[in-house]
Design a protein around this nucleic acid. Structure first.
Length: 142
DNA sequence: GCCAACGTTGGC
DNA sequence: GCCAACGTTGGC
């Protein structure tokens, strides 16, 4: 089981839309490192859903339900996407501001590689971020 | 292969 | 709106 964080600008695609859609193809990734991460995702992996630009906070959790396949929005079929399914809303959104104040979280890619839109999260950081967001294990288990 | 110019992302 | 940090492009 791996853990991830994916970014979306709420103006383009928000958590509210994700809640409505439930299952959504995660398309439009046009960065090689982000693509590499997409291809490393396994069905069942969990990912934080982060609002970039507006909000700048972790607002939800999704599960990878379909592993990488060609991105239908890419005419060259060079890039790929995965399908994600809504798992739960993070009861208390974890803001970037808050993350920056926590010494244990200074090494996460969200801070160190601020432009990367699909990144891996260590199990330790995942647990800590879940605590901060007051996500209960039951929320995720179902 | 180097590097300048340019474009994009995302925080502030 | 600005800027830092990258990534990409194209001339040489």
């Amino acid at each position: 089981m791996n853990y991830w964080l994916v970014k979306s600008e709420p103006d383009a695609y928000s958590w509210q839309e994700q809640l409505k859609n439930n299952i959504e193809p995660w398309t439009g990734i046009r960065n090689h490192q982000a693509k590499k991460n997409l291809q490393s995702m396994k069905a069942g992996d969990l990912a934080f859903f982060y609002h970039s630009n507006v909000g700048k906070e972790i607002v939800g959790i999704v599960r990878i339900v379909k592993e990488f396949y060609p991105d239908p929005t890419d005419p060259d079929h060079k890039w790929c996407c995965v399908d994600v399914q809504t798992v739960c809303t993070v009861p208390v959104p974890v803001t970037l501001k808050q993350i920056k104040t926590i010494p244990e979280l200074q090494e996460i890619s969200l801070i160190k590689q601020s432009r990367l839109s699909v990144m891996s999260i260590t199990p330790e950081h995942w647990q800590l971020l879940c605590q901060l967001g007051q996500v209960s294990s039951q929320d995720i288990d179902k």
